[in-house]
Design a protein around this nucleic acid. Structure first.
Length: 406
DNA sequence: TCTGGGGTCCTAGGACCC
DNA sequence: TCTGGGGTCCTAGGACCC
């Protein structure tokens, strides 16, 4: 999709079509997506809101509507599936289609690309672009060249010439770190990269990346698509993180955020019918240093209190490690909670602990889920997360906010 | 240029087991 | 008795993508 978030946000607001608009980019935030009017000023996705407004003072910011993004995304995916069953969704707004089996029915790959684009435009009111090529990575680069609202076809015999005319950072999989290393090694173009001696390349970027890059530089990456994970193969991890409006130092305050994140993540785990075994806590300090600490549980969980308890231990470990370190890492800019090693909940059989209550936190979580789906998010929440809660109410001496259902 | 939030995959060392 | 090789799990960090 072209400028996906911005296009969806502006679908029903034609009066904003020709004025610069960005989705996201508030206080301490970055621009999620900018329409083409804003891009004319140099505004790009990923840019801080502050910088975007410097480039374009009259920029209008609108909030993102995640429900709308998801709805359009699945509608578009359904359109793709009418073309071919071989669809690999790469993200909300991007997919690979293997159309080799559809040409007899629908015409040339170019004709199919135009059919997809016309259908998406008619049914969803947004434009998209397509790259047609023999491999995933080349199709991806071609689609970038097709933007906005176009098609670029790279036939097999032109793949090498197409790639070799590019700069290295245009390769799918070369980011800022690898691009810097390549540049330092004197490799600026894909042509130079393709002809670089493997030894030299290994010294610059390491053995794994080196061979991967030469595969990409000759257009020899995969043609087969991996269909998106289904119920048999769940996501690998689920997480949530939050950047604070102001850096936090108070343990109680930080733990309240951690509890909120743990609740959010486990609710998504339960909704997806999965549980996970490893809890990862991310801490980003005021100086932007980002550290993670993780801990594996005895068995997978989807219980808010269990994830929260593990995250609390990890946070305290980190605080102990960082205390007294030079650089004074006590002010936190962000915390994140992620659960990895996901398996279907049906495959988890809990080991009952001697003396454990028959109805525990898991039942409380499920009751809260039901209340939330009936009365909306925030209808029921841990008391520590009620507006105005301080986490230091009388009679509490445990030193961390309890997650009583409030 | 004061830098979000959601992910995936890879690497590498150490523990542990056979 | 002082030593191999293979495999898996755990933890931490980094790179990349949208």
């Amino acid at each position: 999709m072209d400028a996906f978030f911005a296009s969806v946000a502006l679908r029903d607001r034609p009066e904003l079509h020709d004025v610069p608009v960005a989705v996201g980019g508030g206080h301490r935030g970055v621009v999620l997506s900018a329409n083409y009017a804003a891009r004319a000023y140099g505004v790009r996705g990923g840019m801080s809101g502050l910088r975007a407004r410097r480039l374009c003072p009259q920029l209008i910011s609108v909030p993102g509507d995640h429900a709308a993004f998801s709805a359009v995304s699945s509608a578009v995916r359904d359109i793709f599936r009418r073309i071919t069953p071989l669809v690999e969704m790469a993200s909300l707004d991007e997919a690979f289609l293997d159309v080799r089996g559809a040409t007899r029915r629908l015409g040339s790959p170019y004709a199919i690309a135009e059919l997809v684009r016309a259908t998406v435009h008619d049914e969803q009111g947004i434009t998209c672009s397509a790259g047609v090529a023999p491999t995933v990575s080349v199709a991806k680069i071609a689609s970038r060249h097709a933007k906005p609202d176009g098609v670029v076809v790279v036939p097999p015999e032109e793949v090498v010439a197409f790639l070799h005319a590019l700069d290295v950072e245009e390769l799918y999989g070369v980011g800022t770190a690898t691009a810097t290393r390549l540049r330092r090694a004197g490799l600026r173009t894909v042509r130079q990269l393709a002809h670089a001696p493997l030894e030299e390349l290994r010294a610059a970027v390491g053995p794994g990346t080196a061979s991967q890059l030469q595969v990409l530089a000759w257009g020899r990456d995969r043609s087969e698509l991996h269909e998106r994970r289904g119920p048999q193969e769940p996501d690998r991890s689920m997480g949530a993180q939050r950047t604070f409006a102001h850096d936090l130092t108070d343990r109680e305050e930080i733990l309240r955020e951690v509890l909120g994140l743990a609740a959010k993540v486990t609710r998504r785990l339960r909704a997806g019918g999965v549980a996970g075994r490893t809890v990862v806590l991310t801490a980003r300090y005021a100086d932007f240093t980002t550290l993670t600490r993780s801990r594996a549980l005895p068995e997978p969980t989807d219980v808010t209190q269990e994830v929260y308890a593990a995250a609390t231990v990890l946070l305290d470990t980190l605080r102990r490690e960082q205390r007294g370190r030079p650089g004074r890492r006590d002010a936190l800019r962000l915390v994140g909670v992620r659960v990895e090693g996901l398996v279907p909940s049906a495959r988890v059989h809990r080991q009952r602990v001697l003396g454990e209550r028959e109805h525990g936190w898991s039942d409380a979580d499920r009751a809260m889920d039901r209340a939330t789906s009936r009365f909306g998010a925030g209808a029921v929440r841990p008391a520590a997360l009620l507006p105005g809660a301080t986490g230091r109410s009388e009679g509490r001496s445990e030193g961390r906010p309890e997650a009583d259902a409030g």
